[in-house]
């Protein structure tokens, strides 16, 4: 089967960060539209990078320009100084477990992002990974730019070159994106070729309107980016999505085993989604364990990681959320962006 793809999206909805460099204009648009913006940084032991992210965003986008209204950190239980440092540099810091305590506790990035919807009040939420070594405020203003300047865009994702830090002080110019190229892109090509136009579907930097995020489920772990993309595409179509080239993002290099575990979660999320959409029929329950092997004293020993694949429902279905945001009638608040 060959799909004739509409390449207009790529031209129309792909931006470069430099197009949004005029931050004053973004602030003006934000004020005119009476919108507010929150930045959420999910963390787990990020003491090396968290301070820099917070102070740069605070200095550039809260003090010099009033683009951001909230800056929060949601922590999964760091054992280093992440929470203290984040608080010292002026972020509002939450432990994920303390938010919505009535609910069962889970640990994962997706859990933090989902709970951020409850503790923030803003109309637009920006999510950034907290391990960006070369953080710059363009990571935020470029992601909110399309949301503020183009009325039809509701969700914006980052892409970039991905040099990786190797060793203590050297940077390798190319590399990374292995899970994207080896796992998610082949899957998208097979089932959603339109979505292959998104350069880095797994990037951890994105922004969107609350009205979108509150209506989609959030897997608690690594699968959150995959499910988010598929759900937004399914519910509102490709035209509400934009992508922005952020130029360069330096991140920690992960070993192949860690990437394998990430790939497992992403594949599982993907399989669940495509089955739910009726695109495939899986005749058995998928297993929950990623099995890898280590050579220990000349013997191969299995290294098993159990991943439950728990998913949080759309937060708008949570009573506390509806109460906080005074949402009574779910149907009324559901926008229909499909043309």
């Amino acid at each position: 089967m060959v799909l004739v793809m509409n390449n207009n999206w790529l031209k129309k909805n792909t931006f470069h960060y430099s197009e949004f460099k005029n931050i004053d204009r973004l602030v003006e648009e934000k004020t005119k539209k009476k919108l507010s913006i929150a930045l959420c940084l999910p963390t787990l032991n990020e003491e090396k990078t968290i301070a820099k992210e917070i102070l740069i965003m605070k200095s550039e986008l809260m003090t010099h320009h009033q683009l951001l209204d909230e800056l929060i950190v949601i922590d999964s239980g760091s054992t280093d100084n992440t929470r203290k440092i984040a608080g010292d540099y002026g972020a509002k810091v939450y432990r994920a477990n303390d938010i919505l305590p009535r609910l069962e506790v889970f640990k994962g990035k997706g859990e933090n992002l989902w709970k951020a919807l409850y503790v923030t009040n803003s109309d637009i939420i920006v999510y950034l990974d907290a391990d960006i070594k070369n953080i710059h405020h363009r990571f935020v203003y470029a992601l909110v730019g399309p949301l503020l300047l183009f009325d039809d865009i509701k969700f914006c994702k980052a892409f970039y070159d991905r040099p990786i830090a190797v060793g203590k002080s050297k940077i390798r110019p190319t590399g990374g994106g292995r899970v994207t190229e080896l796992v998610i892109r082949p899957m998208l090509s097979l089932f959603f070729p339109e979505l292959t136009q998104i350069m880095q579907p797994l990037s951890g930097e994105y922004a969107g309107f609350r009205e979108i995020f509150e209506k989609i489920p959030f897997p608690i772990g690594y699968g959150v980016e995959t499910s988010m993309l598929l759900d937004i595409h399914e519910k509102w179509g490709l035209d509400v999505i934009a992508q922005v080239d952020l130029d360069r993002r330096i991140h920690r290099n992960q070993d192949t085993k860690a990437l394998g575990r990430m790939a497992f979660v992403i594949l599982k999320t993907f399989c669940n989604r495509i089955e739910k959409l009726g695109l495939i029929n899986i005749n058995q329950d998928l297993f929950n364990e990623m099995i890898q092997y280590n050579l220990v004293k000349n013997e191969y020993q299995p290294d098993i990681l159990k991943i439950e694949g728990v998913e949080r429902p759309p937060i708008v279905e949570i009573a506390e959320y509806r109460e906080k945001f005074k949402i009574k009638d779910l149907k009324k608040s559901s926008p229909d962006y499909k043309q």
Partner: peptide
């Protein structure tokens, strides 16, 4: 140029080339 110039900021210190 090829030395990593990205700084690490902590509570009391900044480290980097």
């Amino acid at each position: 140029r090829d030395v990593d110039h990205n700084f690490t900021v902590k509570e009391d210190t900044i480290t980097g080339a």
